[in-house]
Amino acid sequence: MPRLIRLAAAAALACASPALADPHPDASRVLSLGGAVTEIVHALGQQDRLVGRDTTSSFPPEVLALPDVGYVRALSSEGVLSVQPDLILSEEGAGPPETIALLQEAGIPFETIPEGHDAEGLARKVEAVAEALGVPDAAGPVIEEIRADLARVEQANAGGGQKKRVLFILSLQGGRVMAGGEGSGADAIIRLAGAENAVSGFQGYKPMTDEAVTAAAPDVILMMQRGDAQADSDHNASLAELAAMPALAVTPAVRDGAVVTMDGLLLLGFGPRTGAAALELHDAIYGAGS
């Protein structure tokens, strides 16, 4: 069955229109907005064209030497224009809308790269970046590597057995659990890793009541770290801190000390490392070698 699913996905991708973005082969000053987009530019071998990045773009490490124009969803036109881009590649959701409108009015080519959490969506994302940069032929090897990584995850998931229930906690601000529900990136990576999202009934990321957290009864709690002290204080917590919260203290995850923390961009970026991220998460949930 998994092979049939892969073949169906490949067939659907082959039938899709390849023109996912307008080509800009002569663009030499490219600004990348979104960690996954920046990673894809590097994977395509086009990193020498980058002149700037957003705050979420932190991999590979060499991108940190590029000017940071701000958070992708809270951009200023001044910050973006300061790097004098002749092409902007952006993940979906960049903003605020008035800033994006000003940039487009300035005549700077602005290409929005489609979001995607599964094999087909990731392939479309890579193809869109390659198309925009005018190097469509470079997409193939990157997509094949992603598919090979996802195949390894699929093999790791083939062991069967009871799926563990994972609660992704985006933040604990104010003592309330902000969790990843259906349709979120957290939901997608949990499922890719062969586990089950412990929460359902809502879309995206929303706060949960204490009663709902306890009722979710997760086997594993998943959190992320971003490398920034302030951001990590909002998005990450120690086992002792989780155990101090009554709603979480009674869950199997906290009782068993089953708390997994991963790099935020690796976990939720959905770029070329997605398969590696899912495999790392699988091993953390079920134990390496299972």
Rank of each mutant, 00 (worst) to 15 (best):
L4P: 10
L7C: 13
C15V: 13
A19Y: 12
L20Q: 08
D22V: 15
P23Q: 11
S28Q: 14
R29P: 10
R29Y: 04
R29E: 02
S32T: 11
G34Y: 06
V37G: 05
T38H: 08
H42G: 00
H42D: 07
A43G: 10
L50P: 09
T55W: 02
T55N: 06
S57M: 00
P60L: 00
V63L: 08
A65W: 05
A65N: 11
Y71M: 11
Y71N: 08
A74D: 15
L75S: 06
S82H: 06
S82Q: 03
Q84V: 13
P85F: 08
A94M: 13
I108A: 10
P114M: 11
E115W: 04
H117W: 11
E120D: 14
A123W: 05
V126P: 12
L133W: 02
A139V: 03
E145F: 07
R152H: 14
Q155W: 13
Q155L: 15
N157Y: 05
K163N: 06
V166K: 00
D187K: 09
L192Q: 12
V199R: 00
V199Q: 04
K206W: 09
P207Y: 02
P218T: 00
P218C: 01
V220K: 00
L222M: 04
M224D: 09
L239A: 12
A240R: 14
M245K: 15
A249I: 06
A253F: 05
G257C: 12
V260C: 03
L266A: 11
P272W: 01
L279P: 03
